[in-house]
């Protein structure tokens, strides 16, 4: 049977792009609906941070199955999982190894989320803090689950005008 594999992949990518766009749009549409129903005085940031916290707990649960406490590459494995989650959401991210032990970086070169934030008139800082809340929740849950002391710091953020997002993962002990 003859068919054009490139055409098939293009079709898949087009539908995947469309789906990813719908996911991002839905996020902001739900945010808008939730704010309309929220108690008077509810700050959008509080609502958004709580939502990302819920996402973070869910993401962490999916990481538990993929991590092994005694693995020598625990921190790097965690970084790779964050990259995987980010790529699945349409972002372009990589793990950058450090010269120091117990340290890795995750670097985002492209991110479509700020564009959607702009489109739905959400604050750019909300985008940064939402992302932070997501990953910090993941790290907190991972630490509780595995008894580790992993720390995550945001060093650069595209929504703040930086060319990339950069987060440092480090581990005590």
């Amino acid at each position: 049977m003859s068919f054009n594999p490139e055409e098939e992949l293009r079709r898949l990518l087009a539908r995947f792009d469309l789906l990813a766009g719908i996911v991002r749009a839905t996020w902001y549409e739900w945010r808008q609906a939730a704010l309309e129903f929220a108690k008077p005085g509810t700050k959008p940031l509080d609502l958004v941070l709580r939502a990302w916290e819920i996402v973070g707990h869910d993401t962490a649960m999916s990481y538990f199955m993929a991590l092994r406490k005694n693995s020598p590459t625990f921190l790097e494995d965690l970084g790779r999982l964050i990259v995987m989650s980010s790529r699945a959401m349409g972002e372009d991210a990589v793990v950058v190894k450090s010269d120091k032990p117990n340290e890795v970086f995750v670097q985002w070169n492209e991110c479509p989320w700020p564009e959607f934030a702009r489109r739905y008139k959400a604050d750019m800082e909300e985008d940064v803090l939402g992302c932070d809340k997501w990953f910090q929740t993941v790290i907190e849950d991972v630490n509780k689950h595995f008894g580790t002391k992993v720390k995550l710091e945001t060093l650069k953020a595209i929504p703040r005008g930086d060319p990339i997002c950069l987060r440092r993962l480090s581990m005590e002990g």
Binding site: M1, F3, P5, E8, L9, R11, L12, R15, F16
Partner: peptide, 11 residues
């Protein structure tokens, strides 16, 4: 030839 999700053909 697998006819997969999204109607995509995969060899």
């Amino acid at each position: 030839i697998v006819k997969g999700a999204y109607g995509v053909r995969i060899p």
